[in-house]
Design a protein around this nucleic acid. Structure first.
Lengths: 239, 239
DNA sequence: ATTGTCGGATTGTCGGACAATTATCATGGG
DNA sequence: CCCATGATAATTGTCCGACAATCCGACAAT
């Protein structure tokens, strides 16, 4: 007979309303939002309430401020921001290295295969450049790790699959600290990574999906071995 | 020479400060936050500013209100909430069905294998119950879809890998509407899904990882065929 | 064309206020 | 002694009004 009343706080209903407009494409990426005062007038609430709703949308990445300006623009959630959130969530869920590794083993070969299938010339050149720079490096562990991260991210973009791009990000973030330790402790790590990157680039250049996936699989398995050889237990909780 | 000044608004620095405490485990899950007035006093800002910071943390799932109460408690981001955010992000990134399917094909066999390896008796019973209920159903498409969703989520939990659990969620959410259409249009879809679920349960009961992964692979590939046979183009943008 | 200036618009932050709801606790009954 | 109960205090959600800092756009000066 009667439906339950919506007793949610106004700031939540407000952000839900705007969120729905964005997801329904009535507000497209790049459109600017009305000013806070104007929103307050339209929704007939106080500006403080509007601001709470906006903070909500802002941390979901649905609106953002561009280049030091004041206006808010509708945006698609940035990969980095989504990745940060996922990394936090996984950290608080006490994901262990073994868990992340298991996901990497499932995901990355498919990413590599998709990259081999769909990469364009620019993306191939980027991967090559990163592999060359890594191979030539006598750099600090942190710089080497950053290059590995760039390689994986470039691979994700080359896969032309937004699901892979987004899924990639938190895994790479979570793995980077461990990788730094491995590169520090195991002298052969750099060589093995460089070899794997070369092999993957070659396979991707040849558009050989199977080879790309296979080399990635070895690369990821190597990574686990490195983790163990560096004396770290697989049950280590990542953070 | 000079470092850039931190000119971020107070509400952002405030949420960053609390966020760091939570991620650093100084505030553990279940701890309650001080009241807004108390936070305002400690950080020497106005309560309005505190509230904006809290809205930020709240939508990241780092704090939540429990059972209609007033107090805020530190929490780990709920799987459903993280999944919602990811689904939104993927929608706005214009992920196509083909992209989601490609990710499913990479991820789900690994999830099934992990479930076969690590499931306990309760989780096995849950999977069995869902499969039986699905097999016996003359239900509406929406109910059948809900059961498929429950099957995949139960599988994720049985994998005992939080990365799989979190990655699973948005994919399942994105795929459910398509699945409803398929079940509506293709009479044989129900039978094929039921058969796949039975096979997977059998493999998982026997702890046969390879068989579980293999049946899941077929299941996912079947899903793509169903999508095409239902007359939907793979390039359809999910939402 | 670049730089400086000026007024208006907008955001960030503040203080205070109040109703509605929730937490706390003393108190009396079983 | 334990539990229900009601009064009281604390807290949240929302509003109002205010003001400095900053950004924006237009216009003037170099």
């Amino acid at each position: 007979m009667f439906e339950p009343l919506d007793t949610a706080p106004a700031y939540l209903r407000l952000s839900a309303a705007i969120r729905a407009r964005i997801l329904g494409r009535e507000l497209g990426e790049g459109d600017s939002l009305p000013t806070e005062t104007e929103l307050a007038r339209q929704f007939a609430v106080n500006r403080s309430t509007v601001r709470e709703a906006l903070r909500n949308l802002q941390s979901a990445g649905l609106v953002e401020r561009r280049g030091g300006g004041k206006k808010l623009y509708v945006s698609r959630p940035a990969v980095g921001a989504v990745g940060d959130g996922l990394r936090e969530a996984l950290t608080l869920h006490e994901a262990r290295f073994a868990d992340v590794w298991e996901a990497l083993l499932a995901l990355e070969p498919a990413v590599a295969a998709a990259a081999a299938k769909r990469r364009d010339a620019v993306q191939l050149a980027e991967l090559e450049a990163i592999a060359v720079e890594f191979g030539a490096s006598e750099k600090l562990a942190t710089e080497a790790v950053a290059l590995v991260g760039r390689f994986f991210r470039a691979l994700g973009r080359a896969s032309a699959n937004p699901v892979f791009v987004l899924a990639n990000e938190p895994l790479v973030q979570l793995v980077e600290p461990s990788l730094a330790i491995i590169i520090d402790r195991l002298p052969q790590a750099r060589r093995r990574i460089a070899a794997a990157q070369r092999a993957m680039v070659t396979a991707i250049r040849a558009r050989d999906r199977a080879a790309a996936a296979d080399w990635m699989r070895r690369h990821v398995e190597d990574f686990r071995r490195g983790f163990e050889q560096a004396g770290l237990p697989l049950e280590t909780v990542v953070r």
